[in-house]
């Protein structure tokens, strides 16, 4: 038990340098963009005076290291600055848009897992047409671009069947049922490709595990096939599945940017895209930082779950 606790602690501590590096990267990103952010923001007709004022308002006249330090200190205190256009706090903008992105990505990932894992397990034991069918689905679902699938789903479910709204959003707190209705198509769009990745990973991991000698020993002990497959083989296959789920969550966050714009969901993705087109750098910086931190958090959870399921992980880290 001590080994596991030690592993968890090490893994949590490891995120600190990663978070630090991420903050530097996000901070520098905006400074690396060619051209002066303030000039781009204010347009070509801005007077040098206005530019200087905005510049000092944003703290851009300080040395880079001071700017970073101020930004980091504020960020650690939960202050990501102010939107230069709407004058709203970045944190309050994010507090509205973040839950939408989270709802979208978490629902999509859950759906992908609920479909991908059981199908992967079933397909692992099959050959012939079941396997060919699943291979076809995997190749198709991975190859189809999100935005195209989204448009097709809208055409089918809204255009032909008139079952679901094409775009828009209602807060969950206002009307849960309506909120979920709006979520169906975006979630379906995002989950399709993900379920294929998870199916493929589950199938490959299960195939490998089922040929291990300890599976033969479990059978020799007379355990039921159900418990061998769903308890022992699945737990031993969980490493790749959990890891891919964590990585794909990052892909989902990226995909959410496209999907939120396609379905007009006011999530973080849409916030960032709008901010980019308006050269609203403070918003971009805050949004990207939060999304990056979210991804780091997901990776941390992934590794902790992996460690919980497979005791061999503790060994690998203490080396």
């Amino acid at each position: 038990m001590n080994g596991r606790l030690e592993y968890a602690l090490r893994r949590v501590l490891l995120t600190i340098p990663v978070l630090f590096a991420t903050s530097i990267f996000v901070f520098l990103l905006i400074r690396l963009v060619p051209g002066d952010p303030v000039r781009t923001m204010l347009g070509i007709r801005a007077t040098p005076d206005t530019i200087a004022t905005v510049r000092s308002q944003l703290g851009l006249d300080h040395p880079l290291i001071t700017q970073y330090w101020d930004w980091l200190r504020n960020a650690l205190h939960g202050d990501l600055g102010q939107d230069f256009i709407s004058h709203e706090k970045i944190t309050s903008l994010l507090s509205v848009s973040m839950p939408i992105t989270l709802e979208l990505t978490i629902l999509a990932m859950l759906l992908a897992l609920v479909v991908g894992v059981p199908l992967g397990i079933i397909v692992a034991a099959k050959s012939g047409w079941t396997r060919r069918l699943s291979n076809g689905f995997v190749i198709g679902a991975i190859s189809i671009p999100d935005f195209w699938l989204g448009i097709m789903l809208v055409l089918i479910f809204t255009g032909s069947l008139h079952l679901l709204p094409p775009t828009g959003w209602v807060a969950f707190t206002d009307n849960p049922a309506q909120n979920l209705r709006y979520m169906v198509l975006p979630v379906l769009t995002l989950a399709t490709g993900q379920s294929a990745y998870i199916l493929r990973t589950t199938r490959a991991a299960m195939l490998g595990t089922l040929s291990e000698p300890y599976i033969a020993f479990l059978r020799a002990k007379g355990l039921r096939q159900r418990s061998i497959v769903y308890l022992h083989a699945l737990r031993n296959s969980s490493g790749p599945i959990v890891t891919v789920t964590g990585i794909q969550f990052g892909v989902l966050l990226g995909g959410a940017i496209v999907i939120e714009n396609l379905f007009a969901l006011p999530g973080v993705g849409r916030l960032i895209v709008t901010a980019i087109s308006e050269r609203n750098y403070v918003v971009v910086q805050g949004g990207v930082l939060v999304v990056a931190c979210l991804f780091i958090l997901v990776n941390l959870i992934t590794d902790l779950v992996h460690g919980l399921l497979d005791p061999r992980v503790e060994e690998a880290v203490s080396r």
Partner: peptide
């Protein structure tokens, strides 16, 4: 298969060659 399963591990048991791989590493 179910009749055999009832015998396996109960009336007839088996020990494998390599103990390093005979036990489920996650339990």
């Amino acid at each position: 298969e179910s009749q055999l399963r009832e015998l396996r591990g109960d009336r007839i048991s088996m020990v494998f060659q390599d103990p390093a791989t005979s036990l489920d590493p996650t339990f």
